[in-house]
């Protein structure tokens, strides 16, 4: 086996725990996408091209609610804006990749992909392009296949509310929010977003609670600022 091949397989081994963690959510996305009116093709297209779980869930939540297309795109953009920070950090770690390799590596950069790459680099373990692909490709293939599977089987459920499936999406988002709790400014940000969102929902109406609530949280974070040495990823 060449060094490149062994790097690739080392990446595949590192991908196993990520695949176990991600697998249920890939299926859940497909099923909820079908529930919100997406075809299996559209659900699979979204997993293959957007490839960012939380924002995909936000997207299908808004598709289900008859909202202007630009708001859907803007909301996906907002949820994925954290990638800007990952990208700035990871750009240094993968500085030795060629331009094309970087372009592909960034397309496959998810939260666990970024976190694993940075962990390895921090420990002084090499993160060559072959290893990066070995880590990324099995997770990507699983995610895309599951969207199709979940959508095909999800569309067989005819009354989602009867099984409380309609409430899985907000619970999933809540789980994500709680998962961020180790981050700088978490409590003031979440408190400000929650209060502003509820007020906007009541006084302005849906879907403006998403943008106005989000904006309030971000503004609070900017006002507080951040101490050096905080955690970027939990």
């Amino acid at each position: 086996m060449t060094a490149t091949q062994s790097d690739f397989w080392r990446g595949v081994r590192d991908a196993v725990p990520i695949m176990i963690a991600v697998a249920p959510f890939g299926l859940l996305f497909g099923a909820l996408a079908a529930e919100n009116g997406l075809t299996p093709f559209e659900a699979t297209l979204m997993s293959a091209t957007v490839y960012a779980g939380a924002s995909q869930m936000v997207g299908i939540e808004l598709f289900g609610a008859d909202i202007a297309p630009w708001i859907v795109v803007f909301s996906i953009l907002a949820v994925n804006f954290r990638h800007v920070l990952y990208s700035a950090t990871m750009g240094q770690t993968i500085g030795a990749y060629s331009r094309m390799q970087k372009a592909l590596a960034f397309a496959l950069m998810t939260d666990p992909q970024f976190a694993t790459t940075e962990q390895k680099a921090e420990k002084g373990i090499a993160t060559p392009f072959a290893w990066y692909l070995g880590l990324a490709l099995p997770v990507y293939a699983l995610w895309v296949a599951e969207a199709w599977l979940g959508a095909v089987f999800g569309s067989l459920i005819d009354d989602p509310a009867a099984y409380a499936i309609d409430f899985l999406l907000p619970l999933y988002f809540l789980g994500m929010v709680m998962g961020f709790r180790g981050r700088a400014n978490w409590l003031p940000v979440v408190a400000a977003s929650a209060v502003a969102s509820v007020a906007a929902y009541h006084f302005v109406g849906s879907p403006w609670h998403v943008s106005l609530g989000g904006l309030a949280g971000v503004a609070v974070a900017a006002i507080i600022g951040v101490r050096p040495g905080h955690k970027l990823v939990v």
């Binding site: 988002f173 961020f180 940000v189 977003s193 609670h209 904006l215 949280g217 974070a221 900017a222």
Partner: peptide, 13 residues
């Protein structure tokens, strides 16, 4: 850094 928690909270609240 605060954007994902802020937006997701606003959706759930």
């Amino acid at each position: 850094n605060a954007v994902p928690a802020a937006v997701l909270t606003a959706i759930v609240a």
